[in-house]
Design a protein around this nucleic acid. Structure first.
Lengths: 149, 149
DNA sequence: AGCTTGCTTGGAGTGCACTCCAACGTTTTA
DNA sequence: TAAAACGTTGGAGTGCACTCCAAGCAAGCT
């Protein structure tokens, strides 16, 4: 049962992009999408509920059938997630996509703000790297001279 | 009342290092530490409860009196927090510090693992930057040619 | 002495992003 | 055709990192 995969979505770590999708199809079941994206079925349903997906097709019995477009969107959402953008902002973006071209400006702004945040975060991380290296070197020194007096 | 400051600690954003501490003192009240670190008093007490602080001194009436050493530690903890290290790992590190030199090896390892995580995260963010730039350029193009046919 | 402001505690509550459950219907495989 | 695997739903639960609360003691000022 795939439902029970933990998949610890570290909010700051990559989803394990498992299989690449086999081109030549355009209707995927939820478990296929799970395999392609590394998201859980729970998360996919939840994304739909909160409005983070464009309307997902259903089979005649009501089961979800995802398209290649949906997979592309999920790949993009995955990238946004990696930026650290809150899900609420992604939903806003998705809503703007649904509204059409009139929201181009606002979408660009949201993305630019995100871009600035990413740059700031990278700078922050590089700062911490300096501190980490400093400490690590201290421990290395301590090992090299374990009984200096 | 300082207690009610929201201070939205974004887990991926810098604390607003407010005042630099005035050298020449070695016993600070909790509200002074709040001013120096940007953490809330709640968070400072919580850090102590979970074992993330070395034993904090108390006044004769039981109020906390933080030292410069405590402030240095909090600065370091702030850096670790920026790396995205989970609090549980920081507590582990703090415990090792309390154990003494016998844990130098393990501490270095933890820091090295963290360093690798930071490098990976930076790479990830740089990846998202490419996607973001691609999209932003698309919207810029759309603005430059608003009525192409 | 009275008032205001600050500090104490244990425990409960919050927000985010999932994560899981029960109960049931559908599809695929043997 | 029967069993096993997969799909559906609303709503409840989880884990993290805080964040807040109530009730009460303490310190400083007038």
């Amino acid at each position: 049962m795939i439902e029970s995969t933990p998949a610890r979505t570290d909010l700051c770590k990559a989803a394990p992009r498992a299989h690449p999708r086999p081109e030549g199809q355009d209707r995927y079941t939820i478990s296929e999408v799970v395999a392609f994206t590394g998201l859980t079925a729970h998360t996919l349903r939840w994304y739909e509920r909160i409005g983070l997906m464009p309307h997902v097709d259903r089979s005649h019995t009501g089961q979800r059938r995802f398209t290649n477009r949906d997979l592309d969107w999920l790949t993009f959402v995955g990238k946004l997630r990696l930026t650290g953008m809150p899900v609420a902002d992604m939903v806003t973006y998705a809503e703007m996509v649904r509204e059409g071209e009139s929201t181009f400006e606002a979408r660009a702004e949201l993305l630019q703000r995100t871009r600035r945040d990413v740059l700031a975060r990278i700078a922050e991380l590089q700062d911490t790297l300096a501190v980490l290296d400093h400490k690590i070197e201290f421990y290395a020194d301590a090992r090299r001279a374990p009984e200096r007096f």
